[in-house]
Design a protein around this nucleic acid. Sequence first.
RNA 1: UGUCCGAUGGUGUAAAGGUAACACUGCAGAUUUUGGUUCUGCCUUUCUAGGUUCGAAUCCUAGUCGGACAACCA
Length: 562
Amino acid sequence: MPDHKAEKETMNFLEEMIDKEIHSGKIKNESLLTRFPPEPNGYLHLGHASSICLNFGIAKRFGGKTNLRFDDTNPVTEDTEYVDSIKADIRWLGFEWANEFYASDYFETLYEFAIKLIHAGLAYVDDSTAEEIASMKGTPTESGKNSPFRNRSVEENIQLFESMRKGEFKEGEKTLRAKIDMAAPNMHLRDPLMYRIKHAHHHRTGDKWCIYPMYDFAHGQSDSIENITHSICTLEFEVHKPLYNWFIEKLNIYPSRQFEFARRNISYTVMSKRKLLQLVNEKIVDGWDDPRMPTISGVRRRGYTPESIRNFAEVAGISRRENVTDFNLLESCLREHLNKIAVRTMAVINPLKVVLLNYEEHKTEILKAENNPEATEKTYRDIAFSREIFIEQDDFMEHASEGFFRLSIGGMVRLKHAYIIKCENVVKNSDGTIKEIHCTYFPESKSGQDKSGIKVKSVIHWVNAANAVTAEVRLYDKLFTVEAPDAQNEDFKKFINPASLQIFSNAKIEPNMLNYEKDERFQFLRLGYFVEDKYSTSQKRIYNRAVTLKDDWVKEQKKQHK
RNA sequence: UGUCCGAUGGUGUAAAGGUAACACUGCAGAUUUUGGUUCUGCCUUUCUAGGUUCGAAUCCUAGUCGGACAACCA
């Protein structure tokens, strides 16, 4: 299917720059190569989705390619579980990489690069402890001090570095550092660490290595090895750029170039792997794919579509300024897509039994219901109608308040696809709660052939009692109660919304819904868009609400309560 | 009191020295057998001060405010 959004007319600042480079002949379309470089230590989130859309989008737009490269240089935190989830998420978003690489593929080359720098007198083995190195580093406003080991001979450095590789030292005992300038105003140039000792098992290289390169000594060189033309990363790496370029220059290897953009933040959520991991580990949510999580697997389980997320990335755009994008924009993108594709069905979350006093007992008639009024080709389904039905508790008030258009004693509403009914009286339990309501229906008001002449203010959804299927429905709200949980001075977990999940286990749904595939998107009429949860079974159906419908009545009520 | 980066409606982004616009949000209305969709209208914008120019959101200078950088993380 053609992606209409691909033909957008404006370019973001990176696309504009690349467009110029192509027009000036600086680079060729087919050599344009970007990369998406996740570290396999967590699940991808919506910020990564933006980056994925950016990197793959640029390559696609200009006829280039994109590599997937796992930045797996820290064996302590990384795992294949994450590798698998990351690949699944990228594919689900609709992208396919040209090559799948790992920074660990380059460990041998990187080691040779290090030897080369030692020979050039540009790297040395340091015996200082982590604390000593930190204290000699100085501060942003004070220059650092040279390490006492800075002037070891090339031979000694080579021999020591080889011993490091052989595992002759304990963790933390020695490091390899670049010899640059301890007085550099940019802290990253003050003899940055290139290698550290870690006697740890790596998810790919196993126990082959006990020294691992640092990000700065792995990332740029990996880009260079792959001939990446544009290495796009987030703003916090900007200060690393001089170092990125320094290694490439001193090693005299392919000059990949780094460009930065501002990470995507979204209101009412957090977008840091560390914090998301905390929510998972402390069981505040049901794993990385909890439908309230801003992870790709979370929004997928919630019912988001890849199209809606790609569109969100497109509409939100990119820039170099700090931002907090309105959560509404995300939901708006979802609604826009789901409105087009979702199958309309009727489901009642909080059932209230209605008995139609003047409807013949044991009679069932079959009504026709449109599956999607937005579809160009209309399709219909059959639904049963009889004397006893369920309506939503919220659609009934004994005495209507101002602005309440739904059912109340003596009032009338239309049942969608069916008849107009009038509420005659309420039957209560001994404790005063409502047991059921008694109504009458108007036989001549049948949907599509209404001759009753009655005008009602409202149409409500319902489910036929006799063949209704009981299901569980899960409604979600924002995970946090404040716009920027990150930006508060207190622990972000203090702002968790205690009502972010509501479970309704006695919902009634149309039996028709059992005929659809598991990833079908539904619109429960007037309630929102839903998808089956991963735990849903044929014995127990579970539906997640992806997003509500826009609801002016809810808005009105909120205003009245203020 | 170092280096670097940034500043356009409530939010996110456009406008390549020539009428500040688009989307989301909000508000008002029309249509509607979903209080949905659709449609119409409205609210609201270039951080400050100088300078260059016929003309500045855009270029220059200074200031203000915000962010990043002192992990053997990426």
